[in-house]
């Protein structure tokens, strides 16, 4: 159990690191390109592709991190008004179904990864294989699915209603 907890903590730190540096990289690329073009008269041909890759990584790795923090956007009118037993039921049902959908998407995106790996398509300017971007989709969906399973499990285990592993519902 302790090992799993440590592993999870390590994973969370890794997610934080990835999210944070993705944003910093996007800023460096966009600013660097402007400065290089206006000062030295030459654009960074790679800037756009690097930024795009950072956005893709942040978005898909972010599925899991936002799930931990209970920051996925939802329309919770019915949930908020429902009496405890229904709310408790939904707090188990919603993350369970969400996890299933995410695992299905993980499977599809693995298929997409294999497909672009097969064609060997490369990006325009850096000539980087596209599968290097696509690989973050199955990883992101799988980690996200696991996180929602944990959100389900804590609601089975504990008496209170949890919106996420790290976020109790106080309403």
């Amino acid at each position: 159990m302790n090992v799993i907890r440590k592993l999870d903590y390590g994973l969370m730190k890794l997610e934080e690191y990835i999210l944070s540096y993705s944003i910093i990289i996007i800023a460096v690329m966009v600013v660097g390109n402007v400065l290089s073009r206006s000062i030295f008269g030459s654009s960074w041909s790679f800037a756009n592709e690097v930024s795009q890759m950072a956005v893709i990584i942040a978005t898909f790795i972010g599925i899991s991190y936002a799930a931990r923090k209970g920051r996925h956007i939802s329309m919770s009118a019915f949930f908020d008004l429902a009496p405890y037993p229904i709310r408790k039921g939904l707090a188990i049902f919603i993350p369970a179904v969400t996890a299933v959908i995410l695992f299905i998407l993980a499977y599809y995106s693995y298929g997409y990864f294999l497909s672009v790996h097969g064609t060997g398509r490369v990006t325009t300017s850096m000539q980087m294989p596209v599968y290097m971007m696509a690989i973050f989709l199955p990883i992101g969906f799988t980690l996200g699915g696991i996180q929602f399973l944990r959100n389900m499990w804590i609601n089975i285990k504990e008496k209170d209603v949890y919106l996420a592993q790290d976020k109790k519902d106080y309403s």
């Binding site: 008269g41 654009s43 041909s45 756009n48 325009t124 300017s125 000539q127």
Partner: peptide
């Protein structure tokens, strides 16, 4: 010379407009 030309930033386009002294800008 020093002309900022909007074009794809593939290696071939970099060479192509580089040959005129232009700056290909994606």
């Amino acid at each position: 010379n020093g002309f900022k030309m909007r074009t794809q930033s593939s290696p071939l386009m970099l060479e192509t407009y580089g040959a005129y002294g232009a700056d290909p800008s994606p």
